[in-house]
């Protein structure tokens, strides 16, 4: 990789728009005999012209559209970030419910398999009906599926 002591001067003249007419005659004489400087002048002049042509043909859109698009994106990202703890709490609650049900089944599985269970359950229901009437039973039997449906809806609605 060859370099030249006058390269910085040549570069400065090129970027300042002084090349070739406003450049020092000694520098121009040097550039005529130095391969590295000649290469720098050739490429920089070519690319500066290409840049001017490209800038002249550029048709950038309005900045306000980009501004609002970015604001919307930032806002959506922030809302998503803020709702992450809520989603985590939902998952935690679901896990606790499943664990609770598993614990009940695990500790009571013998009584659940008891063949007299339906008869005992019917007797309990009859006792409740006798003591409290039919309304608490209707409420209980409608509340359980309703709550189940609500939980199912809330857990799947996001998807």
């Amino acid at each position: 990789m060859t370099t030249c002591a006058h390269l910085d001067e040549v570069r400065h003249a090129l970027t300042a728009g002084q090349w070739p007419h406003a450049a020092a005659p000694e520098l121009r004489a040097h550039a005529a005999s130095c391969n590295r400087c000649a290469q720098e002048i050739l490429i920089t002049t070519y690319l500066q012209q290409a840049r001017s042509a490209a800038i002249a043909s550029a048709q950038p859109g309005t900045p306000s559209v980009l501004w609002w698009r970015a604001q919307l994106l930032r806002r959506n990202t922030a809302v998503e970030r803020a709702s992450r703890p809520i989603a985590a709490a939902q998952i935690f609650a679901l896990i606790m419910v499943v664990l609770g049900i598993a614990c009940i089944i695990g500790t009571r599985w013998r009584s659940l398999l008891d063949p007299t269970l339906p008869a005992r359950a019917a007797a309990s229901l009859a006792t409740i009906r006798g003591d409290w009437g039919i309304i608490p039973l209707i409420l209980a039997f409608t509340l359980i599926p309703t709550l189940g449906a609500v939980i199912l809806y809330l857990s799947t609605e996001r998807k």
Partner: peptide, 12 residues
């Protein structure tokens, strides 16, 4: 609450 949080976080 969420929007207020979002607004604070999205101060350009």
């Amino acid at each position: 609450i969420a929007i207020a949080e979002a607004a604070r976080a999205t101060e350009p």
